[in-house]
Design a protein around this nucleic acid. Sequence first.
RNA 1: GGUCUUAUAGCUCAGCUGGUUUAGAGCACCUGCCUUACAAGCAGGGGGUCCUAGGUUCGAAUCCUAGUGGGACCACCA
Length: 897
Amino acid sequence: MEELASKYNPADVESKWYQYWLDNGFFKSKPDGREPYTIVIPPPNVTGVLHMGHMLNNTIQDILVRRARMLGKNACWVPGTDHASIATEAKVVNKLASEGIKKKDLTREQFLEHAWDWTRKHGGIILEQLKKLGASCDWDRTAFTMDDKRSESVLKVFVDLYDKGLIYRGLRMVNWDPKAQTVLSTEEVIYREEKSKLFYLKYYVQDSASVKPTGEEGEILHKDEKGYYAVVATTRPETIMGDTAMCINPKDPKNQWLKGHKVIVPLVNRVIPVIEDRYVDVEFGTGCLKVTPAHDVNDYALGKTHGLETIDIFNPDGTISDAAGLYVGQDRFEVRKQIAIDLEKAGLLEKVEDYDNKVGYSERNQDTAVEPRLCKQWFLSMQHFADIALPPVLNGELKFYPSKYVSTYKNWLENIQDWCISRQLWWGHRIPAYFLPTAEGAEEKFVVALTVEEALAKAKKIAGYENITADQLVRDEDALDTWFSSWLWPVSLFDGINNPGNEEIKYYYPTSDLVTGPDIIFFWVARMIMAGYEYEGKMPFKNVYFTGIVRDKIGRKMSKSLGNSPDPLDLIDRFGADGVRMGMMLSAPAGNDILFDEALCEQGRNFNNKIWNAFRLVKGWEVKDMEQPESAQKAVKWFQHQLNKTIAEINDCFDKYRISDALMAVYKLFWDEFSSWYLEMVKPAYQQPIDKATYEATLGYFETLLKLLHPFMPFITEELYQNIKERDAKDTIMLSLLPNAEDFCEKNINRMEITKGIIAGIRNIRANKGISPREAFEMFYKGEFDDKNNAIIEKLANVSKIAETTDDLGGAAATFMVGTIEISVPLGNNVNVEEEIKKMEEEIKYLEGFLAGVEKKLSNEKFVANAKPEIVEKERKKKSDAESKIATLKENIAKMK
RNA sequence: GGUCUUAUAGCUCAGCUGGUUUAGAGCACCUGCCUUACAAGCAGGGGGUCCUAGGUUCGAAUCCUAGUGGGACCACCA
């Protein structure tokens, strides 16, 4: 290690050490006698690329895993990827489309061939990117939600839950994504506020002549040359072809006259009844609601109670179906525009108003509005799962950081809805249900089984199907929701479904910490807790650390369209992985959004450079067998205490998952205490050798600091650890043990704080007077002064003599206070008496203000009577301290004058 | 509409169960310095009606109430 560059270059070392760790299998874990520490990665989309959210998330996981390893635990971080059915299928469909191939022209097998090709080609890039970040995953364990073990687990769980009666098939109003052409769960729909229009349509009364105004107060009648009509306000005029009733509130005085009549749907000319239901909001619009049972959840409910017909006017792709009779084959949004024009022309549009409403979009496919649609799907009953998943979080067995998410979780579970788990997709786990042949129009019959053979056996037991053959069974075309595989992740990674009670699941489960974003608390976290209790009877993880969302520095979400999302790999190139990791962590308290600013990575890089240069200094020293100077001896002793104190602080931060605070504590320990103070205290004069004892103590401290830093900055710490001294072939800082939090002496640390204050004061005088550090000072003190660090003061402040004042310095000294100690430095002619007096007078002014506050408190009888005695005592001490300081200062001023 | 959360220095945040000198950190800013580890640095420095108004208390940045302004989630009006 000769001639180290004065700038640290991460690129030189990062890939080297990552390869070293891999080659030596340092990331691998096998069950053994040690305490396990397990993290399962939130599996990223298999064909995705690394974004800033991943960077944050995985940096935190790596910090936790590396620290656990260095605490002597058997740390196991299991990586893997998710098949992300909707997103991946969409990508494959697009890719095929660009080649002129339509999905519907392919068989399921052919399509899956393409999907697997795509996955093989793009899959796992993201895991390679994580390696650049330094992620210490056990890569041999890399799993995929659609690999054999995980797939088998998913199907087994489906069959099991079906057999338990928790999975059922039902005709429900579900959310339909017309682009992906699949249903979505309620959680997968996100609502966005939109500026839209409210159309007021005329529904003429069929038998206008029979209308009799009631004459009651508040009644509103609409009439024109064509007769009486009702006005219905709607944001979706294109759905009128599906209207099968108009609904009013029976208590609504405006619309009493409509009771019992029939109205005519505009343009469609279908005659529909006016029904009455208290569901209708009297205040909204005109109080008349068009009822379209096939395309709205609430209308569906109305349709059910009032026995209305449902007319499905949409095709799966969002175009108008034959059943509508009008606009057949046109897109729903085109029709909305067109129908408004046609209604207007026909005189059936009373008015149009601007209106803000919320429109649901697919979470995976945010440019497509979701369409409520009635269809038959597979559902999982959730009440049972809510019942088993809520108590452990409420009673704190399973902890959330930050804890505010407990109420979010509770709220969701207490209002749980059944989970629609089927998707009309091919890329995913195909539902293991087999339909039996039935007569036209008869109720469907099916069996659920893991294999065709088992399905056949089950089918044969059904009356009338004794002679059924395998080729008569038709397997359900649908696949399962991606989250139906992810919810098993902590269990399935250790093969706990296929191979219950195996050695690995017994050892690694429950896992320790889960690190993820709050946006998937329902999708994933809650459901993993459910599956964990259902299949292992235990929580899947002990703690959940919710990260914030990564935003740009002005608080906007990072997005491709805004172009405000930096490329993580580019950042790593520029600042080094360690620098970027630190940049991420500097501003990432749990649960708070992080406002990402490149400047933080720069700060990280600068810190790396600081460490690097401290190392250059220490390694550049020539060691000689000589006596240890007193200053060094005191410094070495002090730093041990300071170190122990900070270690305790760091441990405390980690216990509370305050990781950025832990980093800040190490940062300050290294930069301020170690580099700025300790190294200056022990540093020999230029080109002078250092004594062995100090040198070795310093190297020891350096190594300890590197260990404390390692979880945050794995690369530079390994590089320097290897270079501090000769290491054995397979030595690594990764597997070294972190120091314990040993006792420390507060008194020693406080004494050094005073020493630092004195040194700073003297340096200040030099700076103000422009006196060179080479010119030695004499220093006099007054007050309770502890002289144990005199050697350090002499060295760092260049002081030649330290003595108690003899009171006759006259006006020739600069003075300052450190605590209650007064320090004077004789300066001869250099003293500007007026300036010194002015300074002291300002100090007195401050102290008097302070003293007044304290005295006010102490003169308050109620305070003295009610406050705790130690508090009163403290105030008295404050008072006497302030008084003695003021006295000293006044005395000084008098002398100077 | 409901639930939760938050308001402290230019920025990002600490400040735990009220009392540790009339509030701290990091960054940014200002002023000196290219001092032989480090200018990606060193030495100094300035900067805050602790959102507003009430209340509880001997004492409030800290607890309570209301208001205002952020944020998140859930529900939803056709």
